[in-house]
């Protein structure tokens, strides 16, 4: 059973030989970038460089997926925001939004650009997915991701204002989130058509550290449901932070699997959701994988499996400066311990 078969079978809830170790979020490494002789700042604007880099995590370490994009600004840029890729940065700086689309409450009434699929870097991403699939698609599942409606709205307008309006003028926010959902549906569809086997929806801004479970249910969930429902292949819903109170709602959004980070008590979530639910998680990609030693990596992977994750999967993007020996230790632990459960 190769990695691709293993991951796709997992999504279909069919029997597999061991717990897979993969991600639906960014997982490129500096080791991979350097091996190719690329610069981090360059790979966001070049489909081939992006795809080449994304493939190295599998090629070098056996990590069981290939995922693009690398940054979180594709959709906002297509909607009309201006992004900064920090072209001259020496180290690793992820692109951010430089200029918002909405500058105040009175500008919230926006409509969807009719040519969204051909705006910004959406075409570049489609090309990157195609290249990645042609390169390693017979060996691993190819993943891509879009943001969740609320997280995208928080990029398109001031997050501060969005949060307050979620409380004061929920109907206005709901309307905006619906437009965001429509945008994300278009982008996700393009990614699927380009060959993505699974799409992760990253609703990172709607964590219960930030919003009450009530606001989550009333405001965040409906547009999220709409996006996930439109994904015809496998889908994963990722939310950061403390998610134990909302895992049931996350499942109600209708994804094939949910993804949680280290602040989630997975044993508890497993109890709540039952043995059949697909729960991906939940190691700390920085404090364990980057700054931890090999022993910490191994014990953390074992704990994830013991707690009952369906796939060992990081709580966020893997930070590129991850030491190669930690990646090797992670995959070795998966191979030895992952089949025992």
């Amino acid at each position: 059973m190769n990695s691709r078969e293993r991951v796709l079978k997992l999504f279909k809830k069919e029997a597999i030989d061991r717990v897979p170790c993969f991600s639906g979020m960014g997982n490129i490494t500096e080791t991979g970038i350097n091996k190719l002789g690329y610069r981090f700042a360059g790979i966001h604007l070049d489909a081939k460089q992006m795809a080449d880099t994304a493939a190295t995590t599998y090629k070098l370490f056996g990590y069981e997926c290939g995922v693009v994009p690398v940054d979180l600004c594709v959709e906002a840029e297509a909607m009309g925001c201006v992004i900064n890729v920090y072209p001259h940065a020496e180290g690793i700086l992820y692109p951010t939004i430089k200029e918002k689309l909405i500058h105040g409450e009175d500008e919230m009434n926006i409509s969807l650009p009719s040519d969204l699929a051909s705006r910004g870097r959406v075409p570049l991403l489609k090309e990157a997915i195609r290249l990645l699939k042609a390169d390693i698609g017979s060996e691993v599942a190819i993943g891509s991701y879009v943001l969740g409606p609320f997280t995208l709205a928080g990029q398109i307008m001031e997050l501060n204002d969005l949060l307050k309006l979620s409380f004061k003028k929920a109907d206005k926010v709901a309307k905006l989130l619906d437009v965001m959902a429509d945008a994300l549906i278009i982008v996700a569809k393009e990614y699927e058509n380009a060959g993505a086997d699974y799409i992760t929806v990253r609703e990172m801004g709607a964590t219960s550290d930030v919003l009450s479970p009530r606001v989550f249910k009333n405001l965040i969930l409906p547009p999220l449901q709409k996006v996930i429902k439109s994904i015809s292949g496998h889908s994963v819903l990722h939310i950061c932070g403390k998610t134990n109170d909302i895992v049931t709602s996350m499942m109600e959004a209708g994804p094939t699997a949910i993804s949680v980070e280290q602040k989630n008590d997975v044993a508890e979530s497993r109890k709540k959701l039952g043995g059949d639910a697909l729960i991906f998680g939940n190691f700390d990609p920085y404090n364990v994988l980057v700054s931890g030693n090999e022993e910490l990596v191994r014990s953390t992977i074992r704990k994830c499996i013991d707690d009952g994750v369906s796939a060992v999967w990081p709580g966020c993007d893997i930070w590129p400066t991850v030491p190669p020996q930690n990646m090797i230790a992670m995959m070795d632990e998966i191979n030895t311990y992952g089949g025992k459960k």
């Binding site: 949060l163 307050k164 979620s166 409380f167 004061k168 219960s208 930030v210 919003l211 009450s212």
Partner: peptide, 8 residues
């Protein structure tokens, strides 16, 4: 209270 309330 959550973050929206704190901001207000």
């Amino acid at each position: 209270y959550f973050v929206p309330e704190i901001l207000m």
